[in-house]
């Protein structure tokens, strides 16, 4: 219990690839990204509502999930906000 855990950035592989593809496709990716955001938010809304009636342990778990989903969202916003030439760089690497 006294040893800290190694942080594991869990990669949501499918999500990651979909977003990268959308950004690199050359076509405006707004439609897809907005739909993806809405999907995330829908889940977050449901979790928030569930947390109201949850026990302490469950609400801590829900908080954990909420923060992680929010992290995905923030990454999506961040990635779609980057200038285009960096995305082209990624294209070369991949």
């Amino acid at each position: 219990m006294s040893e800290p855990e190694e942080p594991q950035p869990q990669l949501q592989t499918v999500l990651f690839q979909k977003v990268v593809l959308a950004l690199m496709s050359g076509r405006p990716a707004h439609e897809y990204l907005d739909a993806q955001r809405e999907a995330h938010l829908k889940v977050m809304r449901e979790l928030t509502a569930a947390r109201r009636t949850a026990s302490l342990r469950d609400s801590l778990l829900i908080d954990y999930q909420l923060f992680h989903i929010e992290a995905d969202l923030r990454w999506i916003d961040h990635a779609s906000g980057r200038p285009d030439n960096l995305i082209e760089e990624m294209e070369i690497e991949l």
Partner: peptide, 13 residues
């Protein structure tokens, strides 16, 4: 903030 927006019934961007 998404977690704040999650308290709402609906969201507009």
């Amino acid at each position: 903030e998404p977690r704040v927006a999650a308290y709402a019934d609906r969201q507009v961007t």
